[in-house]
Simulated scan of single mutants.
Amino acid sequence: MNIVDILVIGVGLSMDAFAVSVCKCLAMKKMDIKKALVCSLYFGVFQALMPLIGFLLGSGFKNVVSSIDHWIAFVLLGIIGINMIKEAKSCDVVNDSMDVKTMLTLAVATSIDALAIGVTFAFLKVSIIPAVSIIGLITFVCCFIGVKLGSVFGEKLKSKAEIMGGVMLILIGTKILIEHLFFQG
Results as ranks from 00 to 15, higher is better:
Phe140Tyr: 06
Leu7Trp: 08
Ser66Phe: 11
Ala17Gly: 08
Phe123Met: 12
Gln184Ala: 06
Glu179Asp: 09
Val147Glu: 04
Gly10Cys: 08
Glu87Gln: 06
Ile68Phe: 12
Val45Asp: 08
Leu124Trp: 07
Pro51Arg: 06
Ala114Pro: 03
Ile68Arg: 02
Val64Cys: 12
Asp5Leu: 11
Met15Gln: 08
Leu26Lys: 11
Asn83Ile: 03
Asn2Phe: 05
Ser111Pro: 01
Glu87Pro: 05
Lys34Met: 04
Pro130Ile: 08
Leu169Pro: 03
Gly60Tyr: 12
Ala27Phe: 10
Ala122Asp: 11
Ile53Asp: 15
His70Phe: 09
Leu49Tyr: 03
Ile134Arg: 07
Ile112Val: 04
Ile85Gln: 01
Gly81Arg: 00
Lys148Val: 03
Ile33Thr: 15
Val65Thr: 10
His70Glu: 06
Ala88Asn: 06
Ala48Arg: 01
Lys156Gln: 09
Leu115Lys: 07
Gly136Cys: 04
Ser66Met: 13
Gly118Ala: 09
Leu37Asp: 07
Cys91Gly: 08
Ser59Arg: 11
Ala114Glu: 05
Leu49Arg: 01
Ile72Ser: 01
Gly118Met: 05
Met103Trp: 00
Val126His: 06
Gly58His: 07
Ile163Phe: 03
Val38His: 09
Lys160Ala: 05
Gln47Trp: 12
Lys89Asn: 07
Met103Ala: 05
Gly173Tyr: 11
Trp71Ile: 13
Ile176Gln: 11
Cys91Glu: 01
Ser40Trp: 01
Ile33Tyr: 15
Ala116Phe: 02
Ile33Leu: 13
Gly136Lys: 01
Ser111Gly: 00
Leu181Val: 14
Ala88Trp: 02
Phe140Cys: 11
Ser66Leu: 14
Leu137Gln: 09
Met84Arg: 01
Leu77Gly: 02
Ile145Arg: 14
Val141Arg: 14
Met168Lys: 00
Ile117Cys: 05
Ile170His: 14
Ser159Trp: 13
Leu56Asn: 13
Ala27Lys: 05
Phe183Ala: 14
Gly81Met: 01
Ser159Pro: 11
Val167Gln: 10
Lys89Glu: 07
Ala109Trp: 00
Phe61Lys: 10
Thr120His: 09
Lys34His: 08
Gln184Met: 07
Ala88Cys: 10
Gly136Thr: 00
Gly185His: 15
Cys39Ser: 14
Met50Gly: 04
Ile172Tyr: 12
Leu169Asn: 03
Phe55Met: 10
Ile72Pro: 00
Cys143Thr: 11
His180Asn: 14
Asn95Asp: 15
Leu49Trp: 05
